[in-house]
Design a protein around this nucleic acid. Structure first.
Lengths: 189, 189
DNA sequence: GTCTATAGTGCGATAGAC
DNA sequence: GTCTATCGCACTATAGAC
């Protein structure tokens, strides 16, 4: 056996998801997760700045895709169109993510305040990056912030719907519909 | 001196704000805050479930006012009108809050990731309560969630603007303007 | 890889308000 | 007497320092 197996980060994530599912987040210590994959407790914290972060990876790819989608959009688009591009792009990234895996992860997060807190924080960061990208496309404040926050809301709502049991539509389709609902908010009723 | 002076919660908050301002959030221990007002470390944790919470009080009043504003609105209003009521009501609550105090508090929060995280979490909870209130007023999903999240975004943006140096308008005025900007998002450009 | 600070918790004792 | 706020001790686990 090699001094260290490759993919330690991924193995730690996998073990963490399993342990959190079976015994709960707070009942699982960082040492336990590390031990499950033959690593030292200290090594766990070398891979993740804190215990919660083990559930929030792939965030960087998401952020990059979001910003790129806005940056590559044709010039002169409206805020709503721009966030439409961004949402569509990110939804596509989840096209081949297994629904069951995402569901298991979200279940753990939803049953723990500290994890929900981290997720809200990640969402807020995402909105901030998107806001900056919108500004770079010439959108002024407060429109840039309002649009960016709306985009994150729309995406999260669509994501929740995508995870719902009996939901068979793709995330892209759901997201597009949710965005349409947002645009209709004002004219409704 | 009596075994306990009244208003321990408020005194702890005041001392915490001062200590956080002078030495930073992480450099200040819970024991230190308690000691500053002649209390035991253990007592601090009786008043606040955790150290961060000492900066987030008055949250319950805010939540109550928000929900009440929506609940008391005339029947048959549009989502946008309803969040207009809610935002106006909450903005009024800040009418006699000293700007300097709010600024000091926000400065501390902005310079610490853990505190920002908590603030984002509180915002998310606020949005959720507002969403439920909108549902009770007959607003269906996904409109209820979209409107609730938008309301929180508008309010926070307005609040940030209110804190800006050289800003002299009241929070109510700024909030109303920001809401108008949200409604104009779609027609823009 | 070890050592330490400190957040946060559980429990029992105590002191005052009523 | 009860009820509630405070205290003090011991404990665990995270997170960071060395």
């Amino acid at each position: 056996m090699a001094r260290w197996e490759p993919g330690a980060t991924a193995r730690l994530q996998k073990a963490a998801l399993e342990l959190f599912t079976s015994q709960g987040f707070e009942q699982t210590t960082a040492a336990e997760i590390a031990q499950a994959v033959g690593l030292n407790r200290r090594t766990f914290f070398r891979h993740f700045p804190d215990k919660r972060d083990v559930l929030f990876l792939g965030q960087q790819e998401l952020e990059g895709a979001l910003v790129a989608a806005v940056a590559q959009a044709p010039a002169g688009e409206s805020p709503m169109s721009l966030i439409g591009f961004a949402i569509a792009r990110v939804a596509d990234m989840f096209a081949d993510t297994p629904r069951e895996h995402a569901r298991a992860r979200q279940t753990i997060i939803d049953t723990n305040a500290a994890l929900l807190e981290r997720q809200h924080h990640k969402n807020a960061n995402l909105a901030q990056l998107l806001r900056d990208a919108l500004r770079d496309q010439g959108i002024a404040e407060p429109a840039a912030t309002l649009a960016a926050e709306s985009a994150v809301t729309v995406f999260n709502l669509a994501f929740r719907q995508w995870l719902a049991t009996n939901e068979t539509r793709t995330l892209s389709v759901i997201a597009a519909e949710t965005l349409a609902e947002l645009r209709a908010l004002d004219v409704r009723r």
